[in-house]
Amino acid sequence: MKINERYYPLLATLAVLVLLYGYGIVEHRAFSDTYVLGALLTDNAFLIITAVGMTFVILSGGIDLSVGSMIAFVGVLMAELVTGFGLHPLIAVVISMAVGTAFGAFMGLIIAKFDIQPFIITLAGMFFLRGMCFLINLDSVPIDHPFVSDFGGFKIPLPGRGWISAAALLMLITVIAGVVIAHYTRFGRNVYAIGGDRQSAELLGIPVHGTIIRVYTLSGFFSALAGVVFAFYTASAYPLAAVGVELDAIAAVVIGGTLLTGGMGFVVGTFFGGIIMGVIQTLIAFDGSLNSWWTKIMIGALLFGFIVLQRLITRSFSGMRAGAT
């Protein structure tokens, strides 16, 4: 039986992951330890959470450049609420996530109502949020609270020396939630339809505007959650944190096999994409002799490969509009 062509990019992602991980295990004995796995999940948790939101945006045919600034903004806002106002971190989490989600919804509203390029609006959002960080706080501040240390100390032991941290656990829950939203709700399928061919989606009776607003709301929610995880993970907030994370998230989505033009892809692929980026980083750290910029070179090469692969797949489609590719 022929494998459905929609799975090709996902299979390519898995193959790359297995190859890289396998190479690591062969080259470095310590690589097979679950400690590496646990660290991968924890260190890349905020990136993958952001990338899950980004997956929906890219599936809808859009882009969200504001997520990196959002992570820093949420961290700074939380730090201010906890240390400045003396609120409990959980209340600070609820407030900052509400603000972040509302900001995402606001950008979505402008994108949908005025039919503006998401690139421009989220670029504006990126500058705006980064600027807001400095309005609240100019320096790096620690978030000092027993709850935060408890969050950092939470561990589910894995066989071997590894463990799953609270950040990793939150990330895994996010990925599962993302998979369910994308594949088992009408909203999720409508996102795919709009990204595949917006004009047709409209004629098929899909509420295009509402769906787009919800996509950016979701991205705002997930990047705010990533901001919370990042702040707890580093136990501090810094206005210049997570610069360029939006680009890492986009890379994770594309390496995860999602079509950059929208309409095709899998949330679980984004998870693998994020892990692949982490594995490359770990491999280079293990090697010791290579400059850390080799991570960027490897990721760049992978992106080239995946984008060409996507092009080959969509080119075989008949009836694909020029505008949709």
Binding site: R186, R189, N190, G195, G196, S200, G263, G319, R321
Partner: peptide, 24 residues
């Protein structure tokens, strides 16, 4: 006027999928 990247089944059933407990 259908979506080329979605499966045939989805194109036929968009917005009319059978839901169970709110999920498709």
């Amino acid at each position: 006027n259908l979506v080329p990247t979605l499966s045939v089944a989805e194109n036929l059933m968009l917005e009319r999928q059978t839901l169970k407990f709110g999920f498709i």
